[in-house]
Amino acid sequence: MDFLNAVYAACVVFIGFYVLKVPMKYYVFVLLHLLLVFLTNDFLFPVSYMPDQLRYVESTVAIRDSLDFMNYEQYERSSKVAFSSLMFALSPMLSIKSVYSISIINFLLYAFLFIFLYKKKLLVGNAMLFYLLFPSFALYAAVSLRDMLILLFMILSIYALYRKQMLLSILIAAPLLYIKTQNFLIFIAAILMYKSIEKRNLKSKKTLIRVSFLLILLVAFGSMFSIDDINSIRRSMYAEDGGNREDYIPIAGYVDFLFTGFIGSFYMVLKPMIWEVRNPLQLVQSVENIVVFYMIYKIYEEQKIVKDRFITFLLIYFFVGMFIYGLVVYNFGTAARYRFTFEVVFIVFSLSILHKHRKSAKAVERGKA
């Protein structure tokens, strides 16, 4: 049945490319990601390498078989996995019986996002190459996890914000509350931080109101999480990732919290380091991380020249995400899953915006000539 699902998905994407007049040369590259669905689980590595996939399959199948879409939470103990499974169950897939079935749904999301970004003229220049060739993106678009759903709402909400539709962007991001709550909070925090400094006039009444509002929110939010609470979360994550609780080094205070988060944000992008590699997949990720880090650095350097406001927001958004996850994530595989969505959003949007700046600069030069 999964073969029929694959044929169905290939046809749906072909129709999308044809109707929306997306060049067919890209269809071939996108279709290769469908092949990756069958070259990951039980081929490159066993399903047990990412055992959470089975939870999504079991709960999605149960929801579909029962047709009880209102009481979907009874089929999975984790509310986030249950909600994601509900979305998979509601997808127009012919049949869902295995990890390959949900992986094919994720492939359709990958293809949909490609068409969407292409039609919005955001897949231009190096942004196109990155979208098609980014290894971690290809991997997590080919397995049976919820990360493509997370990326879907992240990209659509960021695009709405790019179009200066803030309310719409927050509404689009709202499902993240049920799939990946941290990502929604990171999005809101980044908006507030950016808006508080957007005008760069710290003496203006509007800026003072924004900064005051942000500080009130930070104090209110911070009061919910003491250092002990943060340490409890970190200690649990440390133990889940195989660490000995007795070896855990706690955060000593808020200064240590900021320092650990700042250092952790850089390590989050680069882990695993070359000397930490233990298997071929980690080696690929380590080399990939170096390339991605270099790309981020080049974007930052060019941004210092063009000073695009939206790239400034994207830098804040990316840094806040890496800061938060850098504090609590220890496992290399978990780090790769959590960061690739932020990397895709940041790099694709930044590269496309910079590409447009370059085109405008060249047009001005030709006009002067």
Rank of each mutant, 00 (worst) to 15 (best):
G261L: 01
A239N: 11
G243P: 03
M224D: 14
G222S: 03
S204Y: 04
S226M: 09
S223Y: 15
A189V: 04
K199G: 15
R200L: 15
L215R: 03
V211G: 13
I188R: 01
S223A: 12
P280C: 04
L283Q: 00
L214H: 01
D247Y: 06
D247M: 06
I227S: 02
S232G: 09
K271C: 10
G264L: 06
F293W: 08
N201Q: 12
Y294Q: 02
E246Y: 06
A190L: 12
S265E: 10
L215D: 12
K203Q: 12
K199T: 05
G243W: 00
V291P: 01
E240G: 06
R245C: 13
K203G: 11
D229N: 07
Y248R: 11
W275E: 09
L270H: 12
P280K: 01
N289P: 06
K206D: 03
V292P: 00
K298V: 14
V277I: 03
Y194S: 10
K203F: 13
Y297L: 13
A252P: 11
F266C: 02
K203I: 12
D241G: 03
P280T: 02
A190M: 12
M237N: 12
Y238M: 05
I227V: 11
K206C: 14
E240I: 07
G253Q: 04
M273N: 00
Y294M: 14
K271H: 13
N289G: 00
L218D: 09
R235V: 11
L208C: 09
S236V: 14
Q285D: 00
A239S: 13
E288C: 14
F213S: 13
